[in-house]
Amino acid sequence: MGKNIEEIKTLKGFMPRAIKYARDMNEDFAEGLAGFYKAIWADREGGLSLKNKHILVFTVACSNNNTESAVKILSRLKKFEATKAEIMDAMMMAAWTGGIQNFTDFSAVVLKEMERLGFE
């Protein structure tokens, strides 16, 4: 397994499906995709924190009505000590950008998972 792939497994804590599928196709393609992940999730001085990056992707997932992804990201937000208020702000921004119907669709599932994860 290539260097980028190993680093992504360490950084993310799991092997992203996209990299696994890419590796099934071609090792070089998987390495390139892993390098893309590395660039996005790198902790750069003066850049967004990993918590803020996860808040952003959570907001986008909610905005796109991708509740499965939003629920998975909540676990990461818990790990990075995001507050309930930060998550609620992100959900409101998702309602602003994705529309009230998307908000109605994702909010029940997300709020239930937040309760399960112990966000207070």
Rank of each mutant, 00 (worst) to 15 (best):
M15N: 09
S107Y: 11
H54R: 02
D24F: 01
S69A: 06
K12S: 04
I55R: 03
K79Q: 06
D43V: 08
L11F: 02
H54P: 01
N52H: 12
N102E: 03
N102V: 04
T83Y: 12
D105A: 10
E81V: 05
M91N: 01
I40T: 15
A70V: 07
D28P: 00
D43Q: 11
A85D: 14
A18C: 09
T104K: 15
G98D: 05
F14L: 12
K78I: 04
V110N: 09
S49T: 15
I5L: 03
L77W: 09
N66I: 07
I55M: 14
S49W: 07
M92V: 06
S107I: 12
M15A: 10
A34Y: 05
I87C: 05
M25F: 04
Y21H: 11
E68F: 14
K79M: 05
A22H: 04
L56N: 11
D28T: 02
A30D: 02
E86F: 08
M114H: 07
K9F: 00
A34H: 03
K20T: 05
F106A: 01
A85F: 09
A39Q: 15
A85I: 02
K72M: 11
A90K: 06
C62E: 08
R23H: 14
I40S: 08
F103K: 05
M15S: 12
K84L: 10
K112C: 15
D43I: 06
A94R: 06
K3C: 02
V71G: 05
W41A: 02
E7K: 14
V109F: 10
K3L: 05
E86H: 13
L77V: 03
I73Q: 06
T67E: 09
M88A: 13
T59I: 05
I8F: 07
N4F: 08
K51R: 14
R23G: 11
N52M: 10
K84M: 08
A22P: 14
K38C: 00
D24I: 00
T67W: 10
G32R: 02
K9D: 00
K72G: 11
G99T: 04
C62P: 10
K20G: 07
F14M: 06
A95C: 11
K12V: 13
A95L: 06
L56P: 01
